[in-house]
């Protein structure tokens, strides 16, 4: 019998990373503090980055990222290997925390609106412009997208995740992910085109 000629495919980088993260989580669960430092170095920036892109606010993103990691520390002893990738799980937790926070802040805003109308709209507008200057053009445009489109676009084009993984994180179908990212990109392009015109970037 001829030996199978097929070359065993080397696992791609992301699955190797996933295995290493699962191993680190297991080490942490058995009391290895060094593993916590490594997990923080690997997953902390991604968690914080996603929260920051979705919320557009550093302080809030820091809170969310810390809470998401805390949930990871807590779940470590119960982690079941092979069921989900650690990073996927963490992205999903982050997404849910962002959604919760946005829902709560919307409630607060509504309550404030009922209480009093701002006497002078000028300070608010000035601060908004200052905030806008602090963010890059992409972030400003992202914040104008509907939430689900923003989530899909960020996961697809900034975190560079595959559609099936995004579908798992957002708990929707792959087709829905494709539709959200397509619509999101189109809306972003339109917003950015508008911004360029407004800011006088059109050179002709």
């Amino acid at each position: 019998m001829a030996a199978p000629a097929r070359i065993i495919e080397a696992p791609d980088d992301s699955s190797v990373r996933g295995d290493e993260e699962a191993a680190l989580l297991a080490a942490f669960a058995s009391g290895d503090r060094q593993a916590a430092a490594q997990l923080t170095a690997r997953l902390g920036p991604r968690t914080f980055g996603l929260a920051l892109r979705l919320l557009g606010d550093r302080a809030e993103a820091e809170d969310v990222a810390q809470e998401a990691m805390l949930r990871l520390w807590r779940i470590a002893p119960d982690w079941r290997h092979g069921e989900a990738r650690v990073s996927t799980w963490l992205y999903r937790v982050t997404l849910n925390l962002v959604t919760d926070r946005r829902r709560r802040s919307r409630g607060r805003m509504a309550a404030l609106d009922e209480v009093a109308e701002p006497a002078d709209p000028a300070p608010g507008a000035a601060r908004r412009m200052l905030d806008a200057q602090r963010h890059d053009a992409l972030q400003v445009a992202l914040m104008q997208l509907p939430e689900r489109q923003r989530e899909a676009v960020v996961l697809r084009h900034i975190e560079e995740l595959a559609n099936p993984e995004i579908a798992g994180i957002m708990e929707i179908s792959t087709e829905a992910v494709e539709s959200l990212t397509a619509r999101g990109k189109r809306a972003l392009a339109a917003i950015l085109a508008g911004q360029r015109a407004e800011l006088g970037y059109d050179d002709d």
Partner: peptide
């Protein structure tokens, strides 16, 4: 240019991990 993890935040995350352990 992904946003860097603020060192203070990294320290808080690690402190949480230590507390959980």
């Amino acid at each position: 240019a992904p946003p860097a993890l603020p060192p203070a935040l990294a320290a808080r995350m690690l402190a949480d991990a230590g507390r959980v352990l």
